[in-house]
Design a protein around this nucleic acid. Structure first.
Lengths: 121, 121
DNA sequence: TCAAATAGGGATAAATTTATCCCTATTGCC
DNA sequence: GGCAATAGGGATAAATTTATCCCTATTTGA
């Protein structure tokens, strides 16, 4: 496991949120769990651009940060479900607002993002 | 300048938001500009944990993404001001909500973040 | 006259995050 | 019997992001 060398900034609310939500897929993971995609394999299908490995890593961090719980069912083949904690649920309205903002400004966002990258792909 | 090798995911609103807000200091930069800290040197004083260099880099990206404008005053010593664009201003309510959530859950966030890192520092 | 403030960029190193690859185990299905 | 689905972890490479260091220029003030 990677061990940090630089202490995080924890000065204000925004810093703290950054520490737990900063991760390429974390917000989407929380959203899809909220939508009822509870099992790792379902999440992977919903987020095909993320590798299985990185989903596991980020789920583990979300769990450590008490935003989700992990339940293991002792069956074979293995079955695991993630659920939002009450704490995690309090983030849903925020994530929803962010998603709505992104959807509303979709065309513009797509344009400015591609403009910056157009030489690349 | 760094050129990306992997195409970004641009499937949904959340993906798009991620592309423009993902950056260690971007949200805080937007917030402080909103608060009236318009000049690079002021921003640096507000965010001492970020280096001058990385602030410049992230401000440039925010400008490319049309969230802020950069105004150069032809005076000496140089004076530059950043302002939110109308587009950028539409993000402020979201950022405010995020900050409030972080402030409200400050103790808990601090605890879970430090728990994960306690072996490190 | 020298230091500090002002703004910013290039080159490179370091830190961090993601991706790739491979391995474990069990059950049901063809 | 072999293959897919299930869940996940270790080791390592690659990608990406941040940090460090140094350089340009000008004016004001000590």
């Amino acid at each position: 496991m990677y061990v940090k060398k630089i202490a995080p900034s924890l000065n204000c609310g925004l810093d703290l949120v950054g520490e737990v939500l900063y991760g390429k897929w974390k917000i989407r993971i929380l959203w899809f769990i909220h939508e009822g995609h509870l099992r790792p394999s379902e999440l992977q299908r919903k987020i095909p651009d993320a590798t299985r490995r990185v989903l596991n890593v980020q789920l583990k961090e979300l769990e450590d940060h008490e935003l989700v719980t992990r339940t293991i069912y002792p069956v074979m083949p293995p079955k695991v479900e993630y659920h939002l904690t009450d704490f995690g649920k309090t983030l849903i309205p925020l994530i929803q607002s962010i998603g709505i903002w992104g959807d509303e400004h979709q065309e513009r966002l797509r344009r400015v993002i591609l403009k910056k990258n157009e030489l690349t792909f």
